[in-house]
Amino acid sequence: MMKIFLCCSAGMSTSMLVKKMEQTALTRNLDVEIAAFPLEEFSNAIQTYDICLLGPQVKFKLADFKAEAAALNKQVAAIEPMVYGLMNGEKALDQALELLEA
């Protein structure tokens, strides 16, 4: 099972995107767990999840979080603002899957 988490200021707006990503995963018959966490929980979440996607509003943490994740051999990326703004679960899930394959 792949485990993906989204990270934003409070974990609220990303919760909507998580639901859309879960719907896409269901239609594709993918075994994934997707969750949303606030910034403060990144260090704990990256321990148990495979990948993190950052909301555009917290993109300023990308370099720090990438370094922390790299030490655990894990990936972090920022969600494209357009994908996030449109709450496009399909494109967000595709981005996560591409990172996992990289």
Rank of each mutant, 00 (worst) to 15 (best):
A45Q: 13
A45E: 13
A45R: 12
A45W: 06
A45Y: 09
I46E: 01
I46R: 00
Q47D: 11
Q47V: 14
Q47H: 13
Q47P: 02
T48D: 15
T48H: 12
T48S: 13
T48P: 00
T48G: 09
T48F: 11
D50C: 06
I51Q: 00
I51W: 04
C52H: 04
C52T: 00
L53I: 05
L54Q: 06
G55I: 00
G55R: 00
P56V: 03
P56I: 02
P56D: 03
P56S: 05
P56M: 04
Q57C: 04
Q57F: 04
Q57L: 06
V58E: 06
V58W: 02
V58P: 07
F60L: 07
F60T: 14
F60N: 14
K61Q: 14
K61V: 15
K61A: 14
K61H: 14
L62A: 05
A63W: 07
A63P: 03
D64M: 08
D64W: 09
D64V: 07
F65N: 03
K66M: 08
K66L: 03
K66F: 05
A67Y: 12
A67C: 10
E68K: 04
E68N: 09
E68D: 11
A69N: 00
A69F: 02
A70D: 10
A70Q: 11
A70W: 02
A71N: 14
A71M: 13
A71L: 14
L72P: 00
L72S: 00
L72I: 01
L72V: 01
N73E: 07
K74V: 06
K74N: 02
Q75C: 09
Q75N: 10
Q75W: 08
V76P: 04
V76S: 06
V76M: 08
A77E: 12
A78Q: 11
A78F: 15
I79D: 07
I79W: 09
I79G: 04
E80S: 15
E80R: 11
P81E: 09
P81R: 07
M82W: 10
M82V: 10
M82C: 09
M82A: 12
V83R: 03
V83T: 13
Y84D: 10
Y84P: 09
G85T: 00
G85M: 01
L86H: 12
L86P: 03
L86K: 11
